[in-house]
Design a protein around this nucleic acid. Structure first.
Lengths: 212, 212
DNA sequence: CCGACTTTGTGCGCGCGTTCACAAGCGCGT
DNA sequence: ACGCGCTTGTGAACGCGCGCACAAAGTCGG
């Protein structure tokens, strides 16, 4: 399955859930594609990787598609995640409501600062970073979220990998070095802003040259 | 300039700044590539789009590269951004320190809830969403950040576009419909988690089949 | 039962981006 | 002054992913 397709499946899934809430039971590739911001041909090709679950002349059954996409994404089981770094961003993540209803459970909140141990955030007590190994073992954690400052991110990452965590979502503004069987996804606010800055800059330059 | 290259320039920029703080004055493509998590050939091709600023046999001058990348990204000027939606995530974004030092200034915080008007967050007073047009005009805002719940995101987006904002960073879990001269970048936590879930799922399945 | 209409699934060609490999260029030591 | 070693910049081949366009397949009205 192409990586590009995998990256789009969650988008389709969300659009389908939104459609289901409006009472729609079937949807055409054209409609779903528009709602997902992609072309209809691309959408159909993506879905074809899951199997042939559409009906020609009608479209796709919304519930059925939700089921098959969820299964492909491995959302049948509940994944336990551990969140390291309970600063500004970490607290926002802990309070984010979209975890439970999508099959993810925060097993623990960890922070390197002993002064914060025991503090309740979103109903969970903050524990010491050194408890990481215990948490991963006892709670069956398989995904790690890093929301620490850049300086500590690589250390936290190394600890996670040492504990057997092979999937990491990194919010710290650093590129993490990991073994090749571990995959890391980065979410970096400044990066995104700078990319927007580039395009805005370019648009302004074009408007200068062609003021018509 | 290829879009893929633009997306990597901020990563190089960060790595260069980190190198500069350690006192390094020059860096080879190999070293910078490793620090940025890419291949050296790709890095050189990316940088070649900016011009020929390397010295054969030596590498790149760190300060010079920082300058040229910053200029290409349009970071010479300070961009004003407006943040709409001061919930959990919005507050974390407002408190994020990485804005000022990278050329971005939060011009205002807006929220649709009148009960929150006047409240101070990160030193800025929350204003009403209906003030948007004034803020954009008076403060010269060119970038909008949407951190509202999914339900209100499209409405906020439409208002931003109507005010002339053509660059939007969307944290709400929705695909926004915009005119083609507006570009939107999405940052979606659940999406990233689900992509990780897929890979974790796949790894588990492989381990099952080939337990060796 | 049949024909017209709708929509899926996919084969094919194209364009972008990545990677390899190497010639050109620069500094340094002798 | 000259050659040696290192690093850049880039031409060329490769591969992936996208979009087009159409045949296959199913529905619905008559």
């Amino acid at each position: 399955m192409p990586e590009a397709t995998v990256a789009r499946l969650p988008v389709y899934l969300r659009a389908l859930n939104a459609l289901a809430e409006t009472g729609r039971t079937t949807v055409s590739s054209e409609a779903l594609a528009t709602a997902s911001g992609v072309g209809s041909a691309k959408l159909r090709k993506d879905l074809s990787h899951l199997g042939s679950y559409g009906t020609r002349g009608v479209g796709y059954d919304v519930q059925e598609l939700v089921f098959h996409i969820s299964r492909a994404l491995g959302l049948g089981q509940r994944w336990s995640v551990v969140l390291v770094g309970v600063g500004n961003l970490g607290q926002a993540l802990a309070g984010y409501g979209g975890f439970d209803d999508r099959g993810f459970r925060i097993a623990a909140l960890l922070d390197a600062d002993p002064a914060r141990t025991g503090e309740l955030v979103a109903g969970l007590p903050i524990r010491l970073l050194s408890d990481l190994a215990d948490v991963v073992r006892d709670e069956g954690v398989s995904i790690g979220l890093i929301a620490t400052p850049a300086a500590g991110a690589q250390d936290v990452c190394d600890r996670l990998v040492a504990c057997g965590v092979r999937s990491i979502l990194n919010f710290a503004p650093t590129v993490l070095q990991v073994p090749e069987d571990v995959d890391v996804r980065r979410v970096d606010l400044s990066n995104e802003l700078q990319i927007l800055s580039f395009h805005e800059h370019r648009k302004a330059a074009e408007a200068e040259v062609v003021p018509a």
